[in-house]
Design a binder for these strands. Structure first.
Length: 585
RNA sequence: GACCCCGUAGCUCAGAUGGAUAGAGCAGCGGACUUCUAAUCCGCAGGUCGCAGGUUCGAAUCCUGCCGGGGUCGCCA
C-alpha cells in the first residue's frame, strides 16, 4: 500500500472528524493537506503540512492545531511515533511492520504496480510528431516524438483513455512543392536527364522511389495530363509514400499512433469544416474584419496594410488578434487548426495535449485561446514545448544545414546508438530545457550513462534471481509464495531504504502524469537504481547482507522478494519510458 | 519593441505545484575487487539559487522591476 496517499486520506479524515466534533472549525480546506516523504530522513517516514495549511482558516496557531491532530494519530496502530517539529510539521514514524507490508502490496500488484485510477477512464488526446510529410524525420523531431509517446504511456498507466494522434499537413504550399519535386523524379525514372533539382524544390534522394513508383503505376500518362490533374495525383501518391516512410522511422523508436488525421480532409468542398468552425466563432462574435497593427521592430519587406478576417483571440488571452484568411482568400494554417481542434473536441476529447518544438512557442496563446473559444471553455489544451536538441560528436556540435539537405536523420541516430539510449536521453531532461545529445556519451557502457546505469540495475537484479536458483535449488524465486514469506527479515537500513523508494513509485508516476512531465520518472528510476547499486555493494564488506544466503533460507526468500519488487518497479518505469528492461548485459 | 522558455556547485542538470539544514552526476582528491556482475560502491571538498524589492508563519519555487542567454513575432507550416 502506498503510504503517502493512504495517510493523506487518514489525516484528512481526522481533520474532518475533529470538525464534526467541534474541536476544530468545519469547512477547513482539507484538500491542501498532503502527506509526503520528508526531505531529511531523520525526520521520520512521513511528514504532513496539515497544521500549517489549516491554521489560517482555523484561526489557530499551527502547533496548537497540530497537537489536536497528533492526539488522534497516536491512536493509529500503524504509527510508531509522532512529533511536532519546526513551524508545525507533523512527523510520523511508521510501525516497523509497515514497510514489509508495502513491499508485499507491490508484489501483489505485480506488473500492475504504479497503475492508478487517477484518470478515471477519461479520454485524452495526445498529438505529437505531426511533421510535414515532405521527407524523412530528422533528429529535431526525435525529442517531441519520444516525449509525446512517453507521456501517452504515462497517462495510460494512470487510468486515462489515451489516443495518440498525428496531424498530417497534407494541404498547402509545401505539399505542392513536394509534388513538383516528385514529378522531377518521375521524369528521371522515365529516363530523362533532369540535371539538378531546381532551387526551391526538394533535392532529397528519398523522392527517387516515389518517381519510380509513379512511373510503374502511371507510365507515360502523367506527362500528357494538364498540370492540375497531374499534381493532384502525384500529391496524393507522394504524401502516402512519405507517411509510410515516417511511420517506418517512428517504428524504429517503438512509436505507433492510433490516428493519422488529414488536414486536407477538413477542407473537403462538400463538407468544409473550416468554414463551419469559423462560422461558429462568428456566431459568438469572435470574428470580425479589421486591420492589424504592424509588428514592432523590423517591418516585413512585403508588409501590406489591409483589412482581413480576424479571430478576436485577445478576448481569450492572446496578445493580438489572428488572421483566419490569407490575402488570396484561402484559409490560414491557424484556421484549419481551429477546425482540427474542434474536431478533436467533438470526438470526445475535452482533454488535449499537443507536443511541439519550442519554435512554435508563439503559437501557444492563440491556440489555447482558440480551443477555449470554440469549445465554450469546456475544452482544455495543454501545449508542451520541447526545446531544441544539440547534437555533439566528440564534444563538438554537429553542423546541420537544412538547405543543403544535410541533416542527421532520426533513423541514422537510432541506428547508431540504439532505441533505448535515444529514448532515455531524450527524457532525461525537462522538456523546456535545451538538451545536449553527445553520441560518445550516449553509447558509453558505464555508470556515466544513466540509461546504462538503470538497465544495469535491472539486469543485476535478474542476475540475483539466476544465482538464487543455482545456490538454493529447491527455492524457486519465480514463484514466491507471499503468504509463506516472512518479510520482517527485511530490517537492514539499506533494505528499508529501497522499499521506501519503491513506495514512492506510484506517487512519482501520478505526479509526472498530472504535470505532463515524464522526465520525473526517468530521474526517479535513476535514484532507485542508485539505491540498489549502493545496497548491493554493502554485501561486499558484509556478506551477511547479500541477497542470497544459502544457510538462511527464510531470510533469502524475503530478500528475493525485495529483488522481485525492485524488478517490478524498474521494469514498469522503463516500460512507461519505452525503454527495454534487459535481463542480462 | 512585444511575447515565450532558461539562469541553482568549476561543468551538465534535478528540486514533487510554497516547507524544515537547497540535492545528484561529471570533473578534482582519497579509498573498496580470491564479486550474489568493480559495467559498481564509499568518503572528502565544492553555494549570495542572476540582481533588487514585495506577498506570509516560511520563497530556488508566487508577484513586480531590472540584468544576461535562447526562441518567436500579419498571409509559411
Amino acid at each position: 500500500m502506498n503510504p503517502y496517499s493512504e495517510f493523506t486520506t487518514r489525516v484528512r479524515r481526522i481533520v474532518i472528524d475533529l470538525g464534526r466534533e467541534a474541536v476544530l472549525p468545519t469547512d477547513l480546506p482539507v484538500e491542501r493537506v498532503v502527506v509526503e516523504p520528508p526531505r531529511q530522513a531523520d525526520h521520520g517516514d512521513l511528514a504532513t503540512n496539515a497544521a500549517m495549511v489549516l491554521a489560517g482558516a482555523a484561526k489557530m496557531k499551527p502547533r496548537d492545531l497540530a497537537a489536536r491532530v497528533v492526539e488522534r494519530l497516536e491512536k493509529d496502530p500503524d504509527i510508531a511515533e509522532v512529533e511536532i517539529a519546526g513551524p508545525g510539521f507533523i512527523n510520523i514514524r511508521l510501525a516497523k511492520a509497515w514497510w514489509p507490508e508495502t513491499l508485499k502490496s507491490i508484489l501483489e500488484a505485480g506488473d500492475r504496480v504504479g497503475r492508478s485510477e487517477l484518470g478515471a477512464g477519461m479520454p485524452v488526446n495526445v498529438e505529437y510528431v505531426s511533421a510535414n510529410p515532405t521527407g524523412p524525420l530528422h533528429v529535431g523531431h526525435c525529442r517531441g516524438a519520444v516525449f509525446g509517446d512517453a507521456l501517452a504511456n504515462l497517462l495510460e498507466h494512470t487510468g486515462y483513455r489515451v489516443t495518440r494522434e498525428y496531424y498530417i499537413n497534407d494541404a498547402g504550399a509545401q505539399i505542392d512543392t513536394l509534388a513538383k519535386s516528385a514529378y522531377h523524379r518521375y521524369l528521371e525514372a522515365r529516363g530523362e536527364d533532369i540535371g539538378d533539382i531546381p532551387d526551391g524544390l526538394y533535392p532529397g534522394e528519398y523522392l527517387i522511389p516515389v518517381g519510380k513508383s509513379l512511373d510503374q503505376e502511371f507510365g507515360e500518362s502523367l506527362i500528357k495530363m494538364d498540370e492540375k490533374d497531374r499534381l493532384a495525383i502525384i500529391r496524393e501518391k507522394a504524401v502516402a509514400m512519405m507517411m509510410a516512410m515516417i511511420r517506418d522511422d517512428l517504428e524504429a523508436l517503438d512509436i505507433r499512433h492510433d490516428v493519422f488525421f488529414s488536414e486536407k480532409s477538413l477542407a473537403d468542398p462538400d463538407n468544409d469544416r473550416i468554414a463551419t468552425a469559423i462560422e461558429a466563432l462568428r456566431e459568438q462574435g469572435a470574428v470580425y474584419t479589421g486591420k492589424l497593427p504592424p509588428p514592432k521592430g523590423q517591418l516585413p519587406d512585403d508588409w501590406e496594410d489591409r483589412e482581413q478576417t480576424l479571430f478576436r483571440s485577445t478576448d481569450f488571452g492572446d496578445d493580438v488578434d489572428r488572421a483566419l484568411l490569407k490575402s488570396d482568400g484561402s484559409y490560414t494554417y491557424f484556421a484549419s487548426d481551429i477546425a482540427y481542434h474542434l474536431d478533436k473536441y467533438q470526438r470526445g476529447f475535452a482533454n488535449q495535449v499537443l507536443v511541439v518544438g519550442a519554435d512554435h512557442g508563439g503559437y501557444v496563446k492563440r491556440m489555447t485561446a482558440a480551443v477555449n473559444a470554440i469549445t465554450g471553455g469546456k475544452g482544455a489544451l495543454d501545449i508542451k514545448l520541447c526545446q531544441l536538441v544539440r547534437l555533439l560528436r566528440d564534444g563538438q556540435p554537429v553542423k546541420m544545414s537544412k538547405r543543403a539537405g544535410d541533416f542527421v536523420s532520426l533513423r541514422d541516430v537510432v541506428e547508431e546508438v540504439g532505441k533505448d539510449p535515444v529514448r532515455f536521453m531524450m527524457l532525461y531532461r525537462k522538456n523546456e530545457a535545451p538538451l545536449d545529445f553527445d553520441f560518445a556519451k550516449v553509447k558509453e557502457q558505464s555508470k556515466d550513462n544513466p540509461v546504462f546505469y538503470v538497465q544495469y540495475a535491472h539486469a543485476r537484479a535478474h542476475s540475483v534471481l539466476r544465482n538464487a536458483k543455482l545456490t538454493i535449488p529447491d527455492l524457486d524465486p519465480s514463484s514466491l509464495d507471499l503468504s509463506e514469506t516472512d518479510f520482517s527479515f527485511l530490517n537492514d537500513e539499506g533494505e528499508i531504504e529501497l522499499i521506501k523508494l519503491m513506495a514512492q513509485y506510484a506517487r512519482t508516476v501520478e505526479g509526472a502524469a498530472l504535470a505532463h512531465e515524464p522526465h520525473r520518472l526517468a530521474f526517479y528510476l535513476y535514484e532507485l537504481s542508485s539505491a540498489f547499486h549502493s545496497h548491493w555493494n554493502k554485501g561486499k564488506e558484509s556478506p551477511q547482507l547479500r541477497f542470497i544466503n544459502p544457510d538462511k533460507r527464510a531470510l533469502s526468500k524475503a530478500r528475493l522478494g525485495l529483488i522481485h519488487g525492485l524488478i517490478l518497479v524498474l521494469a514498469s518505469g522503463l516500460d512507461i519510458l519505452g525503454v527495454d528492461a534487459v535481463r542480462e548485459m
